[in-house]
Design a protein around this nucleic acid. Sequence first.
DNA 1: TACTTTTGTTCCATCGTTTGAACAAATATA
DNA 2: TATATTTGTTCAAACGATGGAACAAAAGTA
Lengths: 343, 343
Amino acid sequence: MGNKKTTIKDIANVLGITPSAVSKALNNHPRISEKTKNAVIQVAQNLNYQPNHIASALRKGKTNLVGVIIPRASSNFFSSIIEKIEDILNDKGYNVIITQSNESYKKECASIEALLFTQVDGIIASMANETVKLDFYNKVKKKGIPLILFDRGENDLNVDYVGIDDYQSSHMVINHLVEQGCKRIAHISGNSNARIYKNRIRGYIDALEQHNLPFKKELLIESNLRQKDGRKIMQQLLELPERPDAVYASGDYVALGALEVLKQNNIKVPEDMALVGFSNEPFSSIVTPAITSIEQHSEKIGELAALTFLKRVAAPNEEVSLNKMILTPELIVRGSSLRVKTD
Amino acid sequence: MGNKKTTIKDIANVLGITPSAVSKALNNHPRISEKTKNAVIQVAQNLNYQPNHIASALRKGKTNLVGVIIPRASSNFFSSIIEKIEDILNDKGYNVIITQSNESYKKECASIEALLFTQVDGIIASMANETVKLDFYNKVKKKGIPLILFDRGENDLNVDYVGIDDYQSSHMVINHLVEQGCKRIAHISGNSNARIYKNRIRGYIDALEQHNLPFKKELLIESNLRQKDGRKIMQQLLELPERPDAVYASGDYVALGALEVLKQNNIKVPEDMALVGFSNEPFSSIVTPAITSIEQHSEKIGELAALTFLKRVAAPNEEVSLNKMILTPELIVRGSSLRVKTD
DNA sequence: TACTTTTGTTCCATCGTTTGAACAAATATA
DNA sequence: TATATTTGTTCAAACGATGGAACAAAAGTA
């Protein structure tokens, strides 16, 4: 068999018309007759024609590729956001390139570089914990392609953003813990350079104040939020002269690590130590005790991010109004923090 | 500022040479003098030249994009494979497009379609549980681009494959359970159409025979391996007139579901019912009791898959020798199956 | 009938890079 | 010195699809 790929030209030859006419027929150009259009479609099918997307991208200056950068795919939060983004964008003829930064600034830069190299039509990203310098993201902005951040964003970048109200999240958690009778609430935070963790810290401190609880510096600990960080930090907390009676962790994995140490030390959860995580990862409901957590409505975040991208490509020149979309989170109360049995 | 992108032509104009010379200089063509090469690189830098990857892809018929299809990113097994694949391929100048099938045949077909449309240089995939028809994968083969399968593959496809020895895995599990004194061992399998589950079933049956244990049809149950499937099936197993005293599940999630039901029913694990999972997901070590599982060496799988791809693109015409790479798995014994305390 | 408008198509340049062939100049070989 | 080889570059044709301008034919209008 002639193993060459069929091109628009082959179709043209069969029908005795020009490639240009074929192209127009396939793109449903108004000036092409129905008769020709049908004939072209027929022949295209017969020859098993597959449009060369690369050629079209070169000519049109548009690849129909969208890059998505996430810190880790293994987190359910991110993977479900991606799923939603894919859903929506695939429908509109876009393909999604997913890359992971693994929370590393260096890897993130490499990802951006790679995506720009691939000439994606836009980037939807959540920043690595490590990332402080915004140079690479500014590079994206300078390229003039849409850049949408979610969850982990920076105000300074001045781009569209979708996320939850982190300040309020902390209030929800602290209010709940206080209701449960907790008085010395520790907070395991992420990198305080990142906006979201900064906001959660602010919320934590303000909420404590509202409840007339003192803020103790030694109960606020910054970390990388991995499971092993949780183990280490909980160890530390247990060694304090005055132990906390509750821990509000800014992630479920770090909370899980903390829980392990608590169990090892036979500390009763929630009676002796209440525990709250963040993100509502599936495992938080299956460990014992199940971990109270914050649900961030990831599908909604994914949806909004995708729709915002589409809006931007549709109207690239509406420079002014940035979209900052802030969703309201939800506290999912479970065994790890439920001291007061209400029945 | 003149917001046009710099092209090879601009560089040529500055230096008074032809675009062709510039292209060759940038590609380190041996016939271009060092002097010209340096000059070109210099000017390219000054003008902030970014090569147009699309144009080059069109001309060369190569996108330097590799598609990876996995059932779910949320499984640690798959996400760590991807991480490794990315590592290796990025190094070689490839970018990786990740897509999820969500275990759905339809979504998998759509993914393949999308990847072919994007004109990836190759596809590395693990099949969805649902997938039985191989038509779309055959389409990939017909395109002539490398196709490498891992974990979930099919012999009929006749392509490179990386995975573990599933037959042996079952032996390891059964041997271990028998050592622990189990006599009625149930097996929760995945879709028996898939090669890997078929092999595990074979291994299960043969191993039972080796130990002179009878194979009971009602103790072999096929499922989708989700957590909820585990709950349902364990419920069923408990209702049998003769309960099993051990369950070997072909996945950690399904094992977890089973464990939940066991705990609810106050059945002692491992004393009354031993439990073994598969894949060694991180959570298997953190639940109580920790679940015995099979470690599949995911990084190694990812590495081999990536290297095989590279080998194929390097020598596309070595038609004959397919690579079927079968790794030896490892049984990680934990509390859920450890009855005999050895100290 | 003469002229305008509409319709359907062809023509041709273009997107930016690559590559084999061609060619002149420089260098090596006999 | 004549001839062969090497070196450095230009030439020109791709890769496949696109879209505006041009153009002929058909249809509509006066």
